[in-house]
C-alpha cells in the first residue's frame, strides 16, 4: 500500500447550528482516482472547499503529502499542488480560451511588475514559453482551434475541458473535479473519462472527484466514499457501493412495508 497523498482527518464543519460534515475521515492514495458521492446536500462540495482552504473546518485536519495544510489560504493551496474545477463552470467570461488557460500559469511566471512594464527580455521569454505550453494543453484536449474564441462561446463539454486545462496549467499533483460530467451527454461523458485517464497518466496525477453519474463513477474510480448528511456511510470499491443497502436507501429512500 502506498502512502496517502491527501488525508482528511476527523473533519467536522458546522455552519451555525447546522453540521455539514460530521467527523469525516478518508485517505486518497497517490495515483488513485477517488470518488466522493452522495445525494444533494450531503456535503461533498463543502469538503472540496475545506481542502482548497476556502473554509476553515470547525474541527479536524487536512494533510497533503504528510503536511498539515488546514487553514492555508486558497491561493497558497494551489502553490502546494492542489487544483480544482467548479460544479457550475466558472471560466473568465471576458477572456479567450487561451487567456483562460494562461491564467493557470500565473504563479509559474517569474517576471516582476517592472519587468512587465518595461518589457524586459525576461517578459518575452516567459510569455513565449507559456503560450506554447498553453497551446500544447489545448491541443491535448482537442480544443486548440478555439484558442482565440471567447471562452463562454464554447459548448458545455468544451468549456469543461477548458476548465480542466486551466487547472492543469497550475501543475497540480492532486486534481479536484466537482461534478465534471454534470450536464454532459453520454458521448461527451465518454470523451471526458478518456481524457481524465490520459492526463492522470501523463501528468502523474491523483484525482478526487465528486459525481452523481454512477455509471461514470463505476468506470472511473478506484475507490469511493459515500456521504449522506455529512456522514460517511460507505467506503470501498464503487462496484460494492451500488449494492450497499445504506447507499441505496440514502439515494432512493427506505422501502416501507406498508
Amino acid at each position: 500500500m502506498s502512502e496517502p497523498l491527501l488525508e482528511v482527518r476527523n473533519v467536522t464543519m458546522k455552519f451555525g447550528g447546522v453540521t455539514a460534515i460530521d467527523d469525516l475521515s478518508f485517505k486518497v492514495e497517490k495515483g488513485q482516482i477517488y470518488g466522493l458521492i452522495g445525494p444533494n446536500g450531503a456535503g461533498k462540495t463543502t469538503i472540496f472547499n475545506i481542502i482548497t482552504g476556502n473554509y476553515l473546518p470547525t474541527e479536524g485536519q487536512i494533510l497533503f503529502d504528510g503536511q498539515d495544510i488546514t487553514g492555508t489560504k486558497p491561493h497558497k493551496v494551489v502553490d502546494k499542488g492542489i487544483a480544482r474545477t467548479f460544479q457550475n463552470i466558472r471560466l473568465f467570461k471576458s477572456m479567450t480560451v487561451l487567456e483562460n488557460v494562461l491564467i493557470g500559469f500565473h504563479d509559474r511566471i517569474r517576471y516582476s511588475y517592472l519587468e512587465a512594464i518595461l518589457r524586459f527580455p525576461r517578459f518575452h521569454t516567459y510569455e513565449r514559453r507559456i503560450r506554447a505550453e498553453a497551446m500544447g494543453l489545448l491541443e491535448e484536449f482537442g480544443i486548440a482551434s478555439f484558442a482565440d474564441t471567447n471562452a463562454t462561446a464554447l459548448s458545455y463539454g468544451n468549456q469543461r475541458k477548458v476548465e480542466i486545462a486551466r487547472a492543469l496549467a497550475t501543475q497540480p499533483r492532486l486534481l479536484l473535479l466537482d461534478e465534471p460530467a454534470a450536464g454532459m451527454n453520454p458521448i461527451e461523458t465518454e470523451d471526458l473519462s478518456r481524457i481524465i485517464h490520459k492526463i492522470k497518466a501523463d501528468y502523474d496525477l491523483t484525482v478526487l472527484l465528486i459525481e452523481h453519474d454512477m455509471k461514470f463513477v463505476n468506470a472511473m474510480c478506484d475507490r469511493v466514499t459515500v456521504l449522506d448528511y455529512g456522514e460517511k456511510i460507505f467506503e470501498g470499491p464503487p462496484a460494492e457501493a451500488i449494492v450497499d443497502e445504506r447507499v441505496i436507501s440514502a439515494y432512493l429512500g427506505e422501502f416501507s412495508n406498508a
Partner: peptide, 10 residues
C-alpha cells in the same frame, strides 16, 4: 470576472 476562480488559479 470571477474572484473565486482567480483564487483557485493561485
Amino acid at each position: 470576472d470571477d474572484e473565486d476562480a482567480a483564487t483557485a488559479m493561485g
